[in-house]
């Protein structure tokens, strides 16, 4: 039988990778719209997206738990379509993570799109490039660093979440038992040795990931030389 902590690691990685991919797909158009719109509703949407930054995870978890239960519409629809209960499932913790990590993906992308502005897109249009062409051949390569930042922050934040998963996922091995919850279990059982292993791995892993982001986002060598030469 597989080591329960290793299983928790696999569940965590599966959740985090899936969440990050979903977030990049949802986050790109959302960040694009927020960067380009001048609508009055912009601030409201921005506030909603930023909410998980300040809200206790248990508050979001509590409302999601209610929404995911079979008594309420989202939970009912899910059960009718998939035949399974949504609350306390792997799907539930992925949906919860998507909402919870949303600001970490949308905000860097929105900032990058705002900084890019319209000039290069207009130049692309004048050379015959349509909207998708412009996105893949102008926007994406130029904002690559922001995409790496967004993906890494979204991933790391998802790995580290606890409260929301406990509320909507519980502690089902192989389904919703992720590393942070396994760690909590060990501490509750006074098994500090195992707790240390998990804690130090999470700490080292997060540190390495963040260091990698900062390394990748360092200004280009060529542009540094240019500044020095001036």
């Amino acid at each position: 039988m597989i080591n329960p902590d290793l299983l928790a690691l696999l569940t965590t990685l599966k959740m985090a990778v899936l969440t990050t991919v979903i977030l990049l797909f949802i986050g790109t158009p959302l960040a694009w719209i927020l960067a380009k719109t001048q609508s009055r509703f912009k601030v409201i949407i921005e506030a909603i997206i930023a909410l998980p930054l300040v809200l206790p995870p248990t508050v979001l978890g509590f409302y999601l738990l209610i929404a995911f239960s079979p008594q309420y519409l989202p939970g009912q629809i899910w059960q009718q379509v998939t035949g399974k209960q949504l609350a306390f499932s792997f799907s539930a913790i992925v949906i919860g993570s998507v909402l919870y990590s949303m600001p970490f993906v949308v905000q860097p992308l929105q900032k990058a799109f705002e900084q890019l502005g319209d000039p290069l897109l207009e130049a692309g249009a004048m050379l015959g490039a349509g909207p998708m062409d412009r996105f893949f051949h102008i926007v994406l390569p130029i904002t690559k660093a922001s995409y790496i930042t967004a993906a890494s922050l979204g991933f790391a934040h998802t790995v580290g979440e606890f409260g929301i998963i406990l509320m909507i996922g519980g502690n089902i091995p192989g389904e919703t038992r992720v590393l942070s919850i396994a760690l909590f279990d060990h501490v509750e059982a006074f098994d500090y040795a195992k707790a240390h292993v998990l804690a130090i791995s999470l700490l080292a892993g997060s540190l390495l990931l963040l260091a990698a982001i900062y390394l990748l986002n360092r200004p280009h060598k060529r542009s540094i030389n240019k500044v020095v030469n001036k």
Binding site: P119, L120, E122, A123, G124, A125, M126, L127, G128, A129, G130, H137, I138, P141, I142
Partner: peptide, 29 residues
């Protein structure tokens, strides 16, 4: 749409693509 008008525009600030070389900028067109 602008991209379908077959009209060229040279901007005051050139607006070359910074992620491409000179040759790649020309090949883009």
């Amino acid at each position: 749409k602008a991209e379908q008008r077959h009209i060229g525009l040279v901007f005051q600030d050139a607006r070359l693509f910074p992620h491409l070389t000179v040759l790649a900028n020309l090949q883009f067109a």
